[in-house]
Design a binder for these strands. Structure first.
Lengths: 145, 145
DNA sequence: TTGCGTGCAAAGGTTTTGCATGGCA
DNA sequence: TGCCATGCAAAACCTTTGCACGCAA
């Protein structure tokens, strides 16, 4: 039987959660969190950040995005109640500068529906990353030509 | 000044490609390739494996899948001609059974146009992989419930 | 008091990089 | 001949783990 472990309310957990919440809608890496909190005077150990993030992901409070294996994982606050109706977020990764762009877009959400209805494939937006070239890099490349 | 680099036909590239082709339909890690080829008596340096795989992914000959960041990346042979054709081919990877689904779809091609026009992002369909759950696995999961 | 959480440092494992050499075209 | 490719070893990188101590409940 899965013994749902009891979660303690520690100072570290609270400040991390508060930080994630304040960054809602943005990507945050484990390092970002640790650095920001340290700058704020609230120290938190790196392993604690990872351990709490993992826990929060399990709880459904935070989403984890794996872009690439040599890129730190991104986390994003989703919410503590609505485990059901969160907005879908799509990710675009620039192959040239490595920048990660995340976008909320109705039309893109439509493709998830299309894939399901027409191709019977249930898209997982958390894992899926669109690779390509971002606007800045396109312009730069055009300028150089 | 398109800097399309010239690709040399080296022994290492050929044996790697041959191996990938022989494993078409299966996942292969960089380590798998290196070990198998060594066992065959065809040695190939580890960095060469990584460098050639990256190149093949860029060329659209091979797809790369990231399961987790602490798990080696998986590669799979797709084909050497598909990138010439007008038709764009999209790839869907089932996260459960690992099956790779190729699909040609006008509506999906539309998303490339949408991304470019609305978000100024030039999609690279060769590299982009949609992750999700395939039809068979959905049914299986439904049955189990 | 119990046992989960924390922090430090070190390990773990994959991928990348520097540099000199080799080899295709 | 020019330039890309290779190989080795070392570095870089994020993440996990071991262990002793701290702290919530």
């Amino acid at each position: 039987m899965s013994t749902t472990r009891l979660t303690y309310r520690t100072r570290q957990r609270e400040i991390l959660l508060q930080y994630l919440k304040s960054m809602a809608g943005n990507h945050v890496t484990a390092q970002d969190a640790a650095e920001y909190l340290k700058a704020q005077g609230s120290t938190i150990g790196q392993s604690t950040v990872y351990r709490q993030l993992e826990k929060l992901v399990d709880e459904g409070v935070v989403s984890k995005y794996i872009i690439d294996q040599n890129t730190p994982a991104c986390f994003e606050y989703i919410g503590e109640d609505s485990h059901e109706a969160e907005e879908v977020c799509f990710h675009c990764k620039c192959e040239r500068c490595g920048r990660l762009i995340h976008m909320h877009c109705d039309e893109l959400e439509g493709i998830a529906a299309h894939l399901l209805e027409e191709h019977h494939f249930r898209l997982n937006p958390l894992r899926t990353v669109f690779y390509g070239i971002c606007e800045a890099c396109q312009k730069q490349a055009a300028g150089k030509q």
